[in-house]
Design a protein around this nucleic acid. Sequence first.
DNA 1: GAGGAATATTCCCGTCAAGGAATATTATAA
DNA 2: TTATAATATTCCTTGACGGGAATATTCCTC
Lengths: 114, 114
Amino acid sequence: MSGKIPDVNMTTLSALSEPNRMNIVELLREGPLTVGEIADQLGLRQPQTSKHLKVLSDNGIVEVQAEANRRIYKLRPDPFQALDSWIQSFRSVMQERFDNLDDYLKELQNKEKS
Amino acid sequence: MSGKIPDVNMTTLSALSEPNRMNIVELLREGPLTVGEIADQLGLRQPQTSKHLKVLSDNGIVEVQAEANRRIYKLRPDPFQALDSWIQSFRSVMQERFDNLDDYLKELQNKEKS
DNA sequence: GAGGAATATTCCCGTCAAGGAATATTATAA
DNA sequence: TTATAATATTCCTTGACGGGAATATTCCTC
């Protein structure tokens, strides 16, 4: 049954789990930015900034737009929508109907013994 | 200003970004389980299962309950709630009012040149 | 208390990802 | 075309993490 549970791109999670990349994402939510601007605001060196942006880009978290010499990076909505629908599928867990369930299981196991 | 943006525990993300741990979480959403049951159902060895569960536990994603010889693991709602409210703060991004914003920025930069 | 089941912990090893430094690439302007 | 700014890429090294195997721990039963 089911099968309707959203497939979280694990790659999205691992991409976001790197602190610098998370910071980049948090920064980009305010609007598109240049590589240099991102590096400046976060105190990162340019090469590592580019590398992190590449990872984010490869994972579809970010998209680029060439503007002459510069590259403007901005967030893409898709992975966030996916993450959202995945986390939504945890409604029941988040509403903690689980404690009862647990007690229920405990009883079951006690009965097993007899 | 602001500061109302939820603090996603990055540790939550990195904990979940490991495939086996994600599988454990997906499995546990159906209800509490024993270490052995988890190992069985996922085809993992007991020691690695314990290790992964320890990581999940250290990050508050999971909680334990001793039951005689066995330890019953189950999901904790907190980190999922946190993740949820964090992702919710990306509403504007997910609704992509960003493309326009981007065009706007592009114009700005073109004007800079003149 | 001895044996055995369930789980946790330790040690070792291989892999992989991130940072640093240097260099390559692309585009602009003169 | 040369100089320069902005960005990407490469190479190297190091540290963290996951798996395997062995062992320790805890608890139950007899």
